[in-house]
Simulated assay, not measured.
Amino acid sequence: MNSKGNESLSKATKSILNKYRIRLNKNLGQNYLIDNNKRNQIINFGDISKEDIVLEIGAGIGTLTIELAKKAKKVIAIEQDSNICKILNQRLKDEKIDNVELINDDALKIEFPKFNKIVSNLPYQISSPITFKFLDYDFDLAILMYQKEFGERMNGEVGSKNYSRLSAMLYFKCDVKLLSDVSCESFIPKPKVDSVVMGLTPKESKIDSKDFNVYSKFTKALFQHRNKKIRNALIDSRHIVSNLDKKEIKKRLNDIDDERINDYLTKRVVVLSPEEILFISKELNPIFND
């Protein structure tokens, strides 16, 4: 350990797990942070005040929850594992903390109560769907821990190996910033890969909700085939953007006489910028859905 704080957090975590005979399941994303310096850093990144209602996904035994609750107006802590949830509930009682709303449920399946900030060491297996879900909510700031590879894809540049549906979706919604690297040694059980802390700050919207919904569908369809040409990607993922069958989709694509659209249809998905994907989604959506 590199500090007494780290040692105490590590010992405290192991002591709680031993006391309740809990064996963490890496397959469920149960990798608990034991680096006190990183915990403090994450909370500081959140700039928490008594005005803030903080959402935490994957609260675990309360490594972040308890410290967040000391700074925030309220913490909404969601934990799916019922046994872990009982432990956290008892810890909150022992610490006399009464500003945590503890929810024992699947974060992907519930409607979130009102919040304005998100601070979470996310279960890695739900990183993608939970991030897309966050985009449906209004918030001021999100401080989120991800596997390093996932974090790199959040800011993927057009045409690069990291350019993905994720980076294209975030482009119109948030400014994304890498805040800190986190070694795999900072967790128990130790994961096979390092992690990163990412900051998401919502942007002023350049796109209305109707257009974004259309963009979202087309982005999902296209990036299922990121190395194919736009035309072929849309044919192969037609069920996402239209109810038409393959023959009719092909016919409508063949009938397009707009030179600019036809030029885009010959390009590969990975080379299109988010603005270009938005353009073709708005142009093609009425053609596929009239």
Results as ranks from 00 to 15, higher is better:
222 L>E: 09
222 L>K: 07
222 L>V: 03
223 F>C: 09
224 Q>G: 10
224 Q>Y: 08
224 Q>P: 00
225 H>T: 03
225 H>Y: 15
225 H>G: 02
226 R>T: 02
226 R>W: 02
229 K>I: 13
229 K>F: 03
230 I>G: 04
230 I>S: 03
230 I>A: 04
231 R>H: 11
231 R>C: 09
233 A>V: 05
233 A>F: 03
233 A>G: 11
233 A>L: 06
233 A>M: 07
234 L>Y: 03
234 L>V: 04
234 L>W: 01
235 I>G: 11
236 D>M: 11
236 D>A: 15
236 D>K: 12
237 S>W: 01
237 S>H: 03
237 S>R: 03
237 S>Q: 08
237 S>A: 14
239 H>C: 12
240 I>S: 10
241 V>C: 08
242 S>N: 02
242 S>F: 00
242 S>G: 05
242 S>E: 01
242 S>Y: 01
243 N>A: 02
243 N>S: 11
243 N>L: 02
243 N>V: 00
244 L>S: 07
245 D>T: 01
246 K>L: 05
247 K>E: 15
248 E>Y: 02
249 I>T: 01
250 K>H: 05
250 K>A: 13
250 K>S: 14
251 K>T: 10
251 K>A: 14
251 K>V: 05
251 K>N: 14
252 R>H: 07
252 R>A: 11
252 R>K: 15
253 L>E: 06
253 L>S: 11
253 L>P: 04
254 N>C: 05
254 N>I: 01
254 N>P: 00
255 D>A: 13
256 I>A: 06
256 I>P: 06
258 D>H: 00
258 D>T: 00
258 D>Y: 00
259 E>Y: 11
260 R>G: 02
260 R>H: 12
260 R>W: 02
261 I>E: 09
261 I>G: 10
261 I>S: 10
262 N>T: 00
263 D>A: 13
263 D>G: 14
263 D>L: 13
263 D>S: 15
264 Y>A: 12
264 Y>P: 08
265 L>K: 07
265 L>I: 05
266 T>M: 05
267 K>E: 12
268 R>T: 13
268 R>Q: 14
268 R>W: 12
269 V>D: 07
269 V>C: 09
269 V>P: 04
269 V>G: 07
270 V>N: 15
270 V>P: 00
270 V>Q: 15
271 V>E: 13
272 L>M: 09
272 L>N: 10
273 S>T: 14
273 S>C: 04
273 S>A: 14
273 S>N: 06
273 S>R: 09
274 P>D: 06
274 P>N: 07
274 P>M: 05
274 P>Q: 06
275 E>I: 10
275 E>A: 13
276 E>T: 10
277 I>G: 03
278 L>G: 11
278 L>S: 11
279 F>W: 09
279 F>C: 09
279 F>I: 06
279 F>A: 12
280 I>T: 04
280 I>M: 10
280 I>W: 04
281 S>I: 00
281 S>F: 01
281 S>L: 02
281 S>M: 02
282 K>V: 11
284 L>K: 05
284 L>Q: 06
285 N>E: 05
286 P>G: 08
287 I>A: 12
287 I>H: 05
